[in-house]
Each structure stands twice: as structure tokens, then as C-alpha cells.
Design a protein around this nucleic acid. Structure first.
Lengths: 157, 157
DNA sequence: GCTCCTTACGATGGACGTAAGTATG
DNA sequence: CATACTTACGTCCATCGTAAGGAGC
């Protein structure tokens, strides 16, 4: 099964009408019929009651509909996340700082400003002793870092 | 983009090796290459660093990997739910009962037994005045009901 | 020179549309 | 008799594999 099947099924469940649903999907009714049959076959479950004159969801259809919507929603999230991450607007950033910097208030200011500009970036802050400030690429936990911040020469990301 | 793309990408991210990943997926390396390129093109994001000698995830790749896994997991859930719902093992059941029945303890016993046999069925219990006990098919909220329970002639589902 | 990702190109399968079939109201 | 879901069948595109190219070690 592919996302296409889920997309088709959700629209059909909304319309409860093969012809109209097919129209919305820019495909022909027979194509929709076959694709829906494929879902039912792979699930070994009947999702729709067809009376040749009206289409309704079975109880299994209701269940699968809500799950399918969840999948599509999650997929949309994934797509967005991927796009934004590609533009550098989303990701995980670890900040190491030396204790003295924390007291200046500058760390807080910088973080606030940054999180405002990039609300989807997860900021992780951790104290490092001065000599352990990581070089790019040798951070713990295998986190990949493409971003680089320098605050007052004390904060590295 | 389809689920296939996500499946390919996740395996590749696990192997970090086109040839091995392709082997696991029972496809040829060139096919895998093209499919991954398709993802990167539709996302306008680079997910992998290829140095001709080693493959690593970019930060965007890390992000997309975790999101893609979520999608696939949700899809597996949807498939399972659909299958079980088709076998009648999963769904939503509303129980109407008259107050007197609640005191007999029978309601509780029956529910316990039922939820033990069908752990995935969501049970909703609500009191009904005797004369409002619903007939099959006219329950509120448009909930579709395929199951039918009778407890002491008082409980209908 | 070997490994391995990529590009090029030809083949096969599946999604799709058109047309016909059938049932319902 | 009209509407609308389905079956049948032919077409076309996309995924796939094979073969060749090129870069790194």
C-alpha cells in the first residue's frame, strides 16, 4: 500500500460518492474503485458498504479513516520538517558554555532572540569546562551539527 | 512522494551504504539512488553527504529520518487497526444502561470480561433513561456500531 | 585496480482512462 | 430510464534492472 491509497480513501470517505471523489482527485471513477478494492484486499477488511445507490463507511472503515488521516497528517509534518531543515530553519543545536558566560545575561538574550527567529529549532544548553568546549564535529551523542553560533567568544554550537 | 520513498530512505539511513541498503530492499543500487534523489528534489533539501567513499546524514537528513520513521510507524498502526477492525476486534462501542443495572455489578463484570477479550475496543458507558435506550442505528454522534451486547436485557450496544 | 555511487538507457508492470456491464430507484 | 458503481481491456508512464561512467582510496 502507498500514500496514494490513503489519499484516495480519505477523499472518498469525505464524499461518500465515487464519482464526486474521483472528480476531486482528478482521476476516473474506475481507477478509484480499483484502488479502494486494493486497500480492502490487503487489509482483508471491508471498509465501505456499497448499495449501488449509496456509499457508507463500515465500522472498520471509520477506524481506518481516522488512522489514515493520522498518517497523512504525519507525512505532511515530515515533508514540512524536511523542507525547513533543508533551509536551516529546523534542527537540533547543542550549546556549550562556560559558567562565567551564564551570569552575564548575554546567553539568555541570545537564546531568546534565536528561538524567536527559528521557533522550530530545539536548543539544548549544557555547561562545559573551558577546555572541553567542543570543536565542530566531535560533539557527544553523534548529533550532526550544521549550525554555528558564537556568543562573546564563549558559546560554540 | 510515496511510502516507498520513506521506506527506502530509512533503510539507507540505517546502512549508510547504497549497495547494502539496496540489497536489504531487494532493489538495485541505481534504483535506490534515483529514488533518494527524488526525495531530495521534492524537498529541495540535501539529506545525505556523498563523498563517493562514505555516506553520512546531513542535519536535514537526521530531521527527516526521525519524521519518516514516525510516518511509517503510524502507517503500520493504521494497517493493524484496519485489519483488526475488519475482524471485529477493534472499534468503538457505546453502552447505554439503566441506573438499576449499575448496582447489580453485572455491568462491571461484563465490561471487564469484554475488555479482556478485546483490549483494543474503546468502551464508552453512559446512562440512559429506560425509554431512551437506543435502537441499533439511531445512536447519537453518528457513531457506527456493528457490535451488539445485551446484559440482563438492560444493556444495548 | 577495486569499490561504490551515479548516469544512461531499455524493459516491464501497474496505474490510468475509455467503454461496456449491471443494479437501483 | 437515469444514475452510479463495477468489470474489461488497451495505453502509457514510472519504477526497475543492466550496463557503462567516474571518483576516491
Amino acid at each position: 500500500m502507498e500514500l496514494r491509497h490513503l489519499r484516495y480513501f480519505v477523499v472518498l470517505a469525505e464524499e461518500l460518492h465515487f464519482t464526486r471523489a474521483a472528480e476531486r482527485l482528478n482521476i476516473s471513477p474506475p481507477t478509484l474503485t480499483v484502488q479502494i478494492q486494493e486497500i480492502e484486499r490487503t487489509l482483508s477488511a471491508q471498509l465501505l458498504n456499497r448499495t449501488k445507490r449509496s456509499v457508507t463507511l463500515t465500522s472498520a472503515g471509520e477506524v481506518f479513516l481516522s488512522e489514515a488521516r493520522r498518517v497523512l497528517k504525519q507525512f505532511a509534518t515530515a515533508e514540512n520538517a524536511g523542507r525547513r531543515a533543508g533551509r536551516g530553519e529546523l534542527g537540533r543545536i547543542e550549546i556549550g558554555y562556560v559558567a562565567s558566560a551564564a551570569y552575564t545575561g548575554i546567553l539568555q538574550d541570545q537564546m531568546n532572540q534565536f528561538t524567536q527567529n527559528y521557533p522550530d529549532v530545539l536548543l539544548k544548553v549544557r555547561e562545559f569546562p573551558m577546555d572541553k568546549l567542543p570543536q565542530r564535529g566531535n560533539l557527544t551523542d553523534g548529533v550532526i551539527l550544521d549550525h554555528f553560533l558564537v556568543v562573546q567568544d564563549f558559546l560554540y554550537v
